[in-house]
C-alpha cells in the first residue's frame, strides 16, 4: 500500500522535551499502522496560539502562519498541511481562509513574506489529524488495525473547544460531537455517552493568567468524569490534556478534592490497541499514571 503523504506541522508544545512531546511519540506508531506519512515542514515556526493577539495584532499573526503555509507549499507541494494541536490548526486554517478570501490581505502577507524569502500562492489546505483519520483513513480501517481491543475500560471523551469550534469536524454538531466516542469504541473501549462536560472549555491559555477561574472549569470536567463512572479522560487537544491533568493536584490542595483521573490522548489509546508498548504510546510521560492503560500496553 502506498502511503498517504502529509505536510506535518507539529507546533511548539510537541517538540522534544516540551509539554506535549508524548503526543508526538504516540502518533508515530498510530500513523505507521494506518499508512499515514507525516513529513515535517522544514524550519516551521510557532503559530502565535490563542493569546498571540495581545501584543501581536492582526497582520503579524497572519504572517506567522502564512510562513508555515508557504514553507509547506514550497517544500512539500501537493500535500495537505496537518497539525495535531487544535490551536495550531485553527490559526493556520483561519489564516489560509482569510488570505484566500481577501486579495489585499494576501498581497500584504506576501510583502512581509518576501522579507523571509518566501511567497504564498494559497494552494495549501490546513487540516487536523483527526480529519485525516476520519475522512481519509475511515473508521473501518481504524478498526481493522486493532490487535489488542481495550476491553473493560470506561472512558470519558473530552473534545474541548478548539477541535470543535468554530470549524469542527464536518458532519458533527457543536453541542454534541460524536466522533471521539466513536473512536473510543473503535478500539474496543466503552465511551461514556452521557458525559456532559464534553465540550466545556478548560480555560485554555488563561489557565496561567487566571488560575482560579480556570480551575473551576477543570474541576467540572474531572468531576463529571468521576460521576459517570469513567476511569480516564481522553482528549484530542494538547492544552486540554496538560490543563486537565496537571492542575488536579492544585485543585486537590486548594479544595480538598481527591482527584487522580488520568488524561490521555486518543492517539495513545490507538497506539496501545495497535499493539504498541508503554514507550511507543508515550505512556511514560504522565503525571497522573494511566495505570490500566499502561498494564494493557505492557501485556
Amino acid at each position: 500500500m502506498s502511503k498517504r503523504q502529509y505536510a506535518f506541522y507539529p507546533g511548539c508544545s510537541s517538540q522534544k522535551g516540551a509539554s506535549a512531546s508524548n503526543f508526538v511519540t504516540s502518533i508515530q506508531m498510530m500513523c505507521e499502522k494506518l499508512g499515514v506519512q507525516l513529513n515535517e515542514i522544514p524550519d516551521w515556526n510557532c503559530c502565535g496560539a490563542s493569546i498571540g493577539y495581545g501584543e501581536g495584532g492582526e497582520l503579524p499573526r497572519l504572517v506567522l502562519n502564512a510562513r508555515n503555509l508557504a514553507l509547506a507549499e514550497q517544500h512539500l507541494p501537493g500535500q495537505d498541511m496537518v497539525s495535531g494541536c487544535p490551536a495550531c490548526w485553527l490559526s493556520t486554517r483561519e489564516t489560509a481562509e482569510r488570505l484566500n478570501k481577501f486579495d489585499d490581505l494576501m498581497a500584504e502577507a506576501n510583502e512581509a513574506l518576501k522579507e523571509a524569502g518566501l511567497n504564498l500562492k494559497g494552494s495549501v489546505k490546513a487540516r487536523h489529524i483527526v480529519e485525516v483519520l476520519i475522512e481519509d483513513v475511515g473508521f473501518a480501517e481504524m478498526r481493522q488495525a486493532v490487535v489488542k481491543p481495550l476491553q473493560d475500560l470506561k472512558i470519558a471523551g473530552y473534545v474541548g473547544c478548539q477541535t470543535n469550534r468554530p470549524f469542527g469536524i464536518t458532519g458533527e454538531s457543536f453541542e454534541n460531537p460524536l466522533y471521539l466516542d466513536k473512536m473510543i469504541e473503535t478500539v474496543g473501549a466503552e465511551a461514556v455517552s452521557s458525559y456532559d462536560q464534553k465540550v466545556t472549555c478548560c480555560g485554555g491559555a488563561l489557565a496561567f493568567s487566571e488560575p482560579d477561574k480556570s480551575q473551576k472549569q477543570i474541576r467540572d470536567i474531572v468531576e463529571s468524569a468521576y460521576d459517570h463512572g469513567a476511569e480516564m479522560i481522553v482528549t484530542p487537544c494538547q492544552l486540554c490534556q496538560a490543563n486537565v491533568e496537571v492542575y488536579q493536584s492544585e485543585i486537590n490542595k486548594k479544595q480538598g478534592t481527591q482527584f487522580n483521573m488520568p488524561v490521555v490522548y486518543y492517539s495513545q489509546l490507538m497506539t496501545v490497541a495497535y499493539g504498541g508498548g508503554v514507550k511507543q504510546a508515550g505512556l511514560d510521560g504522565h503525571i497522573i499514571q494511566p495505570k490500566k492503560l499502561q498494564d494493557i500496553a505492557g501485556k
Binding site: S13, N45, I51, G52, G54
Partner: peptide
C-alpha cells in the same frame, strides 16, 4: 492575561518558537 500575552509573543518572536 495582558502581561502574559506580551511575554508569550516576545518569547516566540525571538527564536520563532516558544520556549516553554
Amino acid at each position: 492575561t495582558r502581561d502574559i500575552a506580551k511575554l508569550f509573543w516576545d518569547n516566540l518572536v525571538k527564536t520563532g518558537r516558544v520556549n516553554e
